[in-house]
């Protein structure tokens, strides 16, 4: 708007600042509580201005570093390999669908698209993965079900290919004698870096944050990702005491700062996203707006 008085600017900024506090408050509470002395937490609860700070929670986590490090390694392995495989499948499926000259391409596009409209639900899916494909309690359970190929991303990628890669470029590649795979790898993909980057980020975030696959398909806690470990510890904080080393759980639990540790472990789980996010914000915003407007 053109006319925009100073009073209104103040008003708009006050509302936005209030929203900022609303969004950030839980995170600040989480971080401060994780650095609070355990006996202060027991007396006064989680608070923004604790009477006494302390590192008990992190000291305990450090003692249990193997359990946490293993969950982290699993999350990283799953995120990286899942994103790579998923991106490969997405590009390989969406590129042919973007080619206007491909016979029956609409039939195939419909097969992809229909998966967004209709699904069999949890029961048949669960029975198939566990009883027939025996994926439960393997690392594949975290990578393969549900997340490996998202029809919506295929459609986004296809739309990008159709609108941003001129047909003449592909034609020129063919005249030079390049095969289809070569044209895709050497001509089309280098021109699609922004979209590939945006989708990889969204897929990667999906893997990093996923707890459902582990929740449905894993009972073996040695395969837990960081999200599954957090999930278990919310109800049973003793998991960390008994989980990794297999020592005397009761004895260790007695010395465990169980109130603070819940917050510290959540900080450990959230920190990578909080650190990485500001650098990739531009791409997240782009992914969201492109995805919403261009189905």
């Amino acid at each position: 708007m053109v006319e925009n008085g100073k009073g209104f600017q103040v008003f708009a900024n006050i509302i936005m600042l209030a929203l900022t506090i609303f969004c950030l408050f839980p995170f600040v509470l989480l971080v401060v509580s994780s650095f609070t002395d355990e006996s202060t937490l027991i007396r006064n609860g989680y608070s923004l201005f604790p009477a006494k700070l302390g590192l008990d929670s992190y000291a305990y986590i450090f003692k249990k570093i193997e359990t946490i490090a293993r969950a982290y390694v699993i999350t990283i392995v799953v995120t990286v390999s899942g994103t790579l495989i998923s991106m490969m499948l997405t590009v390989l499926l969406s590129y042919p669908l973007s080619r206007r000259d491909l016979p029956h391409r609409n039939t195939f596009a419909f097969l992809v698209f229909f998966t967004m409209l209709f699904n069999g639900g949890l029961v048949p899916t669960y029975i198939m993965w566990t009883r027939y494909l025996n994926i439960d309690n393997t690392i594949w359970a975290l990578i393969v079900p549900a997340l490996l190929l998202n029809a919506f991303y295929v459609i986004m990628m296809r739309t990008y290919f159709m609108t941003s890669i001129p047909e003449e470029v592909i034609e020129a590649g063919r005249i030079d004698g390049a095969g289809e795979l070569r044209i895709l790898a050497r001509v089309v993909l280098p021109m699609s870096v922004p979209m590939v980057a945006t989708l990889s980020l969204l897929i990667g975030l999906g893997y990093w944050n996923d707890w459902r696959n582990g929740f449905y398909y894993l009972t073996d806690s040695s395969l837990f990702s960081i999200q599954n470990m957090l999930n278990t510890m919310l109800q049973d904080v003793q998991f960390l005491a008994s989980g990794g080393a297999g020592g005397n759980a009761g004895e260790i639990a007695a010395t465990m700062p169980s109130v603070g540790i819940k917050m510290a472990i959540a900080v450990v789980g959230a920190v990578p996203i909080l650190i990485v996010y500001p650098f990739f914000q531009k791409y997240f915003v782009k992914g969201i707006t492109v995805g919403a407007v261009k189905g």
Partner: peptide
């Protein structure tokens, strides 16, 4: 800031 909560997993 307002987009941050969207990026955090439901477990957290």
């Amino acid at each position: 800031v307002i987009l941050l909560p969207y990026l955090i997993s439901m477990v957290i």
